[in-house]
Design a protein around this nucleic acid. Structure first.
Lengths: 340, 340
DNA sequence: CTGAAAGCGCTTACAG
DNA sequence: CTGAAAGCGCTTACAG
């Protein structure tokens, strides 16, 4: 592998000059520039990452992470991914600050400001609240040279350098395919949705509905209820739904409130007759899968959602290279009792 | 973060002495040693990885990979994982040599010798042929300071520093649970096995059988055939099996020969009536899932099997740290049409 | 427009 | 038993 030193020797200049050319910093005599570029090309020069990272130690990198873990058990696993990666990055003298906030714009904005103004972070990983004030903020940070990576949910019109998370449409489609495989004959399905205001919930359901319409016409959506991700609302709503439609033989939980809904099924003693499909592997869902109440749950690699954004930020800040693609979709991970 | 330089200053010695103590190289005055250890502990010293990796550039690392990709399409995806990681490691001036061999002890031994004697590799990743000559070889290399990581299949009595691959028992159990979910009523199952001599095939089937015996007694193994991972043998054997047992309504392919077996099903026009489960995502299997002939296939993260061994070797050779655990089981990955 | 030098945090001969 | 120095491959002021 060619190094800057070698190129400098071949070109008869100093390493500083080679650096200037190859990294476009400061003006260089056009003739020398051309010469250096040619040599670099001929030698297929690629910066050595070990050198880059060592040199970057002087920057004393600090990364910020903002999650809604205060209000959502799903984020517990994301947090594990963050912490793991934080330990790894500590070995490179890069530290990671975590802020857990409630599902709320103001709190999130405050957290961003604190991290940027007081802690002076060099990069941000965030599960963004879907509000223009957040996307504006992200754009402002980018102008200041602070990159952002979104995770779990993306946000429009923002200059985040990448998104790490689910492709919700596809995961809804997978739920449809799986529901088809897990059932037989005519399926009378109850859909328990989170909130019609949360984009990822609606995308999932849209993916599901389009798929059954197109490919699995034996699955009929008998009724839909909304639980606002709350277990008690979920319990009440599901109970009512099941009472109203005794023919329901399958349930699709598109978001949270899985435990409450399943308790409703059990209180009516209908768990043997109803095929239940859910998302994510929060502790209560895990138990219900183990007990055979929930047939399968579709997961979205929460750890990766925590770790990968930090990887992307660290790589960008040490090597200056943006990720190859913007959207980093996690794989759609079907879990049953045996591979839980 | 504390550095060697800081410790040296505090202890009033040179960095060389600190290095000797912390890395146990050469003798040091017991008093100074104690002092240095104390300071290191008080400061919670951890070597900076960027420094370690840069210093290791002098070693000009070369890693070897040996796979049975000559005779098995599954390894194509493993190979992709290897190549990806090789590109990444190239950025650290570490090069990766790949040898593809047939399923055969001698060829594999020759490949090892060539890599070690001629190429002088510093570490080896290998899908080992299960033979004592291979495990002996691995032990010999370890004595010479060359670490080995096994992938896809492990080998007993060897001093490989880690194994990356499936937990076959668990993946067989998952197949059992999935088969249960995909069917209903009485299930008359045909099992199409690869070779009774290959440990991972038998482990998978044992996991499957134990599981149905214990938890899914409605699944009966009607007949079992062996196809030696060959599509034409598979075709013939499956054809005979299906003719002999017209009641078969489910098929479990525990290894290769999936395409041949499915062609037998189709030639008898029984694909609508038989639930088929397979392993891995070779191109033909993928197509059959897309067409709805195969209901689901259980994958074993082939890319990770290719990339992670290289990560482990590189980390060991640059930092001297052995992986935290020996067995790195890949996750059991259920794929259907929609999340293929 | 360019070079010389120091530094990031380690390791590795070498000299004494 | 110990220190001084050079080197891994970059970047970053600084001086001219």
């Amino acid at each position: 592998m060619a190094t800057i030193k070698e190129i400098a020797e071949l070109a008869g200049v100093s390493r500083g000059t080679v650096d200037r050319v190859l990294n476009n910093r400061g003006a260089v005599n056009p003739a020398t520039e051309e010469k250096i570029r040619e040599i670099a090309k001929a030698l297929d020069y690629r910066p050595n990452r070990a050198g880059l990272v060592l040199a970057a130690q002087k920057k004393n990198l600090k990364l910020g992470v903002i999650l809604f873990s205060q209000s959502n058990p799903f984020f517990e696993d994301v947090l594990k991914g963050v912490r793991n990666k934080a330990e790894e990055l500590a070995e490179y003298n890069c530290c990671v600050l975590i802020r857990e906030v409630h599902f709320n714009v103001e709190e999130q904005l405050d957290a961003i400001n604190e991290l940027v103004e007081i802690e002076e972070i060099s990069g941000l990983a965030i599960a963004p609240y879907n509000d223009p004030r957040i996307s504006d903020k992200i754009n402002r940070l980018w102008e200041k040279g602070i990159p952002t990576v979104t995770l779990n949910t993306d946000i429009e019109n923002s200059s985040r350098i990448a998104y790490v998370g689910s492709n919700y449409t596809r995961s809804g489609e997978t739920a449809a395919g799986l529901m088809h495989l897990l059932t037989y004959g005519e399926v009378n399905l109850g859909v328990i949705s989170g909130s019609p205001k949360i984009l990822c919930h609606t995308e999932r359901i849209a993916g599901f509905e389009n798929k059954i319409k197109k490919e699995y016409p034996n699955i009929h959506i008998t009724g839909t209820v909304v639980n606002n991700d709350d277990d008690f609302e979920s319990y009440d709503q599901t109970l009512e739904l099941l009472r109203r439609y005794p023919e329901i033989n399958a349930l699709f939980f598109a978001a949270g409130g899985v435990y409450g809904g399943c308790r409703a099924v059990m209180s009516l003693h209908r768990e043997k007759k109803i095929t239940i499909l859910a998302f994510d592997k929060v502790p209560t869902t895990k138990e219900l899968v183990q007990e055979g109440i929930i047939a399968a749950t579709i997961c979205q690699q929460p750890r990766t959602q925590g770790s990968k954004p930090l990887d992307i930020l660290f790589a960008y800040l040490t090597t200056g290279v943006l990720p190859e693609k913007e959207n980093h979709y996690v794989s759609i991970d079907i879990r049953i009792k045996e591979n839980l």
